[in-house]
Design a protein around this nucleic acid. Structure first.
Lengths: 223, 223
DNA sequence: ATTGAAAGAATGTCAGACAATCCTGTTGAC
DNA sequence: GTCAACAGGATTGTCTGACATTCTTTCAAT
């Protein structure tokens, strides 16, 4: 069986475009947590009708990226530290497992890709562009999750990471966080490259725990 | 802080009712995997308008309970064994963690609730009502997940279990599966009751692995 | 039997409407 | 002056109806 050629061109519908645009906007922090989204405004801004917008909003609601309270409409959920902690804990479970599996099954080609992504983060880390840092770091995990051999692990992980994107941006701006993050990620990479499953798990766990600690600090530091 | 009183009465909207009804229908196996859902038919059956139905369908799509292909509309996804395996693996991760946490933090009241739920399954297991078996077994896990101290763990688990409900019903009908399931669940319960985290994890892992094996058998056994 | 075209069915999307509900600022009472 | 009732506007929940586009199926022609 040849690899998935995916010849089928799938027409992008208005609702898909809308979901993607809104998701990107939310993950970029365009909306303040707790703020409400007004349907009529969004329709006007996006140039679409209300039914299409509402379908898109229902998708995002199911992803937990927005909340919709009956008769009050959609809003950006305010992420409590309690929930954020829970997400970090599950993320740890998933990432540790993925890293471990990667170590014992990754192919040379995939490993090179992972290395490239690490280099990209290295470059971003030496700059002050925290957006680029978050994006390249996300790339790095994505590659690990995509090559762990379990698509569900990847799917669930993506959903969870999206929900804590708010913290990720802020904590990456912390003094020295990008550099220590780089060191942690390098260790994960080295372990995977060496095929050392145990080390990969350990390094991955360390990394998530540190990320969580950084998030906590950035959260306590203001407001 | 008093326990969540949840005084706010939330009016149930048509879309919520619809999502619940459809989800229940899907989980009950009312629709054949791979079969298509016709909007106009569903609207007529549910007595609602097309926009409301489509919003509900988008929610279910995001839950992965249905698929919506542009210009072909919604359908029940045919779960491949490959994906089912991936789901069982992640379910194992989550359930093992939840059982372990439960063992070290469950309260006497919650423990009694868990015991009641186990008795309910025991009764169902001795009958031939496989639907009751699946439901009471689901209750048992739900209680564990609800008391593991991590709401995200529970949320993700619920989503995954829903997607393999198809297999659960079939494998529970296997000769002797209900009884061995009961033995496994009892062991989980005993470990949690004893506060033995390690044993709870082990028993939980065993249980998921056996459930997965049973699902495989039931899948291979016909068609 | 394979191909091609036409008819029919189903979806994607929009516009407009209206009742129910929420929010806000004002008025009135104490 | 503070608090409570109230009116008005804003916003959402839901429906109807419409139409272009895209499958799907049928039927005829080669």
């Amino acid at each position: 069986m040849p690899p998935d050629l995916n010849l089928r061109i799938s027409p992008r519908t208005v609702q898909q475009e809308t979901v993607d645009k809104l998701r990107l906007a939310i993950l970029s922090g365009l909306f303040q947590p707790g703020s409400r989204l007004i349907e009529s405004q969004l329709c006007a801004q996006l140039g679409i009708s209300r039914p299409s917008l509402r379908e898109a909003l229902r998708s995002l609601e199911a992803e937990r990226l927005i909340e919709i309270v009956p008769n009050r409409g959609p809003s950006i959920p305010a992420l409590s530290w309690e929930v954020a902690t829970a997400i970090y804990e599950v993320r740890e479970l998933l990432e540790v497992e993925a890293a471990g599996r990667c170590a014992s099954r990754i192919t040379p080609a995939q490993l090179r890709e992972l290395e490239r992504s690490l280099s990209a983060f290295e470059e971003a880390a030496s700059s002050n562009d925290s957006i680029a840092q978050v994006m390249t770091a996300a790339d790095f995990y994505s590659i690990i999750l995509a090559n762990c051999g379990n698509p569900i692990l990847e799917e669930v992980h993506r959903g969870l990471v999206a929900r804590i994107s708010f913290f990720r941006g802020r904590s990456m701006s912390l003094e020295g966080r990008a550099q220590s993050s780089l060191a942690e990620m390098r260790e994960i990479f080295e372990s995977i490259a060496a095929g050392d499953e145990k080390a990969a798990r350990k390094a991955s766990k360390q990394h998530v725990l540190r990320a969580k600690a950084a998030a906590k600090i950035s959260m306590d530091s203001d407001v």
